[in-house]
Simulated assay, not measured.
Amino acid sequence: MKKKRTPRIAPLRRDAVETRTRLLSEAGHAFAEFGYDGVGLRDICKAAEVNLGAVKYYFGSKQELYREALIQPHIQLLQEESVPSFDGSTDPEGALLNWLNFALRTVLVRRREHPYLSRLFIREFANPSFAMEELIELVFKKVRHELVRIVMALKHKDQEDSQVAELANMVILLCVQQEVGRPVLERLAYPPPTKDQDVRALAERIHRFVLAGIKASA
């Protein structure tokens, strides 16, 4: 039986807010560098200059601290900029370009602006933890849902099937691997872009590539 999480109330006092923020920041950097199992609470609390009881007080447990570091910033990214919606009444090719630009901006620009989130995601992607399922449920499915609707329109299908699912997954990986594969791509002298205008140009190139692939799979 899944253990029910105890909801935590955000602190109101300025010093408490600063303490919680500092603890979360140090935890995020540590988890990104060493992984969930590679860092202890004592090390995190020492870096944040708080006592060990602060984790339980503000987050409840190490697991909840990790969840907060990984999942909440991703949710915030979607709150700050919603996934482009597709209702079937607009041009699906144009909708695909908008989706690609959104996805690439999120992974190559917006997520990298966060102090540790990009590195933490890459670690989670390579070695999924207990938090991966929730990350998929709360974040990835929302992003993928609109893409599936676009692919269905391009394939002239009224529901998702194995072919639509596979094509959507391929498109997602084309975007995600730009970030995950950055160390290799940089050494090959073709690093992924980090500026909005360059990301847009990359989105256009991937857009042509994907459309050609979808047509070839008909």
Results as ranks from 00 to 15, higher is better:
L108G: 05
E124Y: 10
R111L: 06
V83W: 00
L117M: 05
W99I: 12
T90I: 03
W99F: 11
F121C: 02
H114T: 13
H74T: 10
E146W: 00
Q76E: 09
R110W: 01
E80H: 06
I71F: 06
K142T: 09
V109C: 04
L96W: 11
Q72L: 07
I136T: 14
E133V: 00
L78G: 09
F140P: 00
L147S: 13
V109K: 11
N127C: 14
I122P: 00
E134H: 03
E137D: 13
T106V: 02
L77Y: 04
T90G: 02
E134Q: 14
Q79M: 11
F130Y: 14
E146A: 12
P84F: 08
P115A: 06
L120K: 04
N101M: 01
M132V: 15
H74A: 11
I136A: 13
P84I: 11
R119I: 01
A103R: 15
S85P: 00
L70P: 12
L147H: 15
P84K: 05
L147Q: 15
R111S: 03
F140G: 00
R123G: 13
R110V: 01
F86G: 12
S118W: 08
D91S: 06
P115V: 03
N101K: 15
E124M: 08
L70E: 11
L70N: 13
I71H: 05
E113P: 01
D87N: 12
R112A: 06
I75Y: 05
I71W: 05
L70D: 09
E137K: 07
E113H: 04
L138M: 15
H114P: 11
Y116V: 07
K142G: 06
F130G: 00
V109L: 07
A131M: 09
M132F: 13
V107I: 14
S89A: 11
R105E: 12
L138T: 15
R111V: 01
K141W: 02
E137P: 00
V107T: 12
L100I: 06
M132R: 13
V139D: 02
L97C: 02
L78V: 08
A95E: 09
P73G: 13
S118I: 01
G94P: 00
R105C: 10
H114G: 05
Q76N: 06
E93C: 06
Q79S: 07
L96Q: 04
R144S: 05
P92H: 03
E80N: 08
N101I: 00
V109D: 04
L147G: 10
H114W: 07
G88Q: 04
H114L: 10
I75C: 10
V109Y: 02
L104N: 07
H114M: 10
K142P: 02
E93Q: 07
Q72D: 10
S85Y: 08
A103D: 08
P92I: 05
L96Y: 08
Q72M: 10
S118T: 03
D87F: 01
P115C: 03
F102A: 09
M132I: 14
K142R: 11
E133Y: 03
N101G: 02
N98W: 04
P73N: 14
A95D: 08
F86N: 11
L104W: 00
N101Q: 12
L117N: 02
P84Q: 06
